[in-house]
Nucleic acid binder design. Structure first.
Lengths: 219, 219
DNA sequence: GCCCTTATTGATCGTTCGCTCAATAGAAGG
DNA sequence: CCTTCTATTGAGCGAACGATCAATAAGGGC
């Protein structure tokens, strides 16, 4: 993609942001501004006309890749009482995983985690509060268990969902971060994982809630 | 840990390796040799007396953290016909996860993956061939299914084990890489995940093998 | 076709990187 | 106590880093 000089500021900014996402995803957030500029076919000082510092450019990448790609429909989907909770969970995960099983998304996410930025923890906090909490509340209701107001959602309940979630994320990580050339159809693999994990989930959830209710019993 | 100058070469090398593991785990493999030396209380040129290049030091870290911590007992454990396969799998994962749920292990692993080094893919290849393949072979036998010689192990079968494995690894990643302060007892969380996932595993495995045997059927 | 705005560049600053080497200093043997 | 060996250091090399700024050139309005 040659540049064609003197773009409009909007077009140039877009080009820089998209190029930066691809570049820093590939080499990590310690990548160099000169190399990024070289790949874009522009000079390095031009980057600093559009972003005051490298850190500001990276902050913009966060907005671009994570905040912008958060789908408000997910929050509605998991509250849609027309479907059973397990089906809502399945639909959410299929759509969510398809969105994040992306070279840039996954690599910048773990790269940010390694560098100690709070983006991953804040993002997973969002998943926890806006997706998993409503789902667990629905599962409580479907099983005739106390509402979260009567008995707060426990850490173990969240782990139930994060466990399945993690298995699905790991499929993408193996390919995008560990470099295992997954020739497999990862969508199908995840669908099969959900088929295996979901049927027993409600029963396990009831056990976990009952254990939490009756003090500190174990299993 | 102040230095006390003029150590024996063996003691100094150990100190450097251990310090390097801790340092590069914390800041990533792009960390700087000067900062590492400062933390060790020595000068930077001394590092280069013990390791010719920074790359050689990092190579040594790989040996130290991954190859050296590989437990040959795992390979025996998963072949121990005295126990049912699911129990072997459980015992392996409990021990394995306890070993790798370690700040340095997990962070250097994903850091190496991001930098494109082949360590993670080679390591996971080891898990696949030396741990999961024997387990799947045993599961085939327990279920009266064809041996791997008669019908090769399929990618879907490996995904069955990698799915559970990934859910367990993700527990550590959330804490060690994403920086979510897991106040929870991660060992107990993983034990509960295994309790939830293992009971249905053999039946699912039979379905997967049957589907693979009868051509390209789906579910 | 000319002018004026501004996107873009070339040159460069101070700093820090991985790495080298001659000089220094601490322990062990006689 | 003095010599010898070598672990350790201080000074510094060339290269590359993020960032700055005056000079240049491309396009739009008249």
């Amino acid at each position: 993609m040659p540049t064609g000089r003197r773009l409009s500021p909007e077009a140039r900014e877009r080009q820089i942001v998209e190029g930066a996402v691809a570049y820093f995803a590939e080499v990590g957030l310690d990548g160099h501004t000169r190399e990024l500029a070289r790949r874009l076919g522009i000079t390095q000082p031009l980057l600093f006309r559009y972003f005051p510092t490298k850190a500001a450019l990276i902050e913009r990448i966060y907005e671009e890749v994570y905040l912008k790609r958060w789908d408000a429909g997910w929050e509605r989907m998991v509250r849609d009482t027309a479907l059973p909770c397990l089906e809502r969970f399945r639909l959410f995960e299929i759509d969510y995983q398809r969105r994040i099983d992306d070279y840039s998304w996954l690599r910048i996410f773990v790269s940010a985690g390694l560098k100690g930025f709070d983006l991953p923890s804040r993002y997973l906090g969002l998943v926890r509060e806006r997706i998993f909490a409503p789902l667990l509340e629905g599962m409580r209701a479907e099983s005739g268990l106390p509402s979260p107001e009567a008995q707060p959602l426990s850490a173990d309940e969240f782990e139930l969902l994060f466990g399945i979630h993690g298995a699905l994320v790991y499929v993408g990580l193996r390919s995008r971060v560990y470099g295992i050339d997954g020739t497999a159809d990862r969508d199908a693999v995840r669908a099969a994982m959900l088929d295996a994990a979901l049927p027993g989930l409600l029963a396990t959830h009831r056990r976990v809630v009952a254990a939490a209710a009756s003090g500190t019993e174990r299993r």
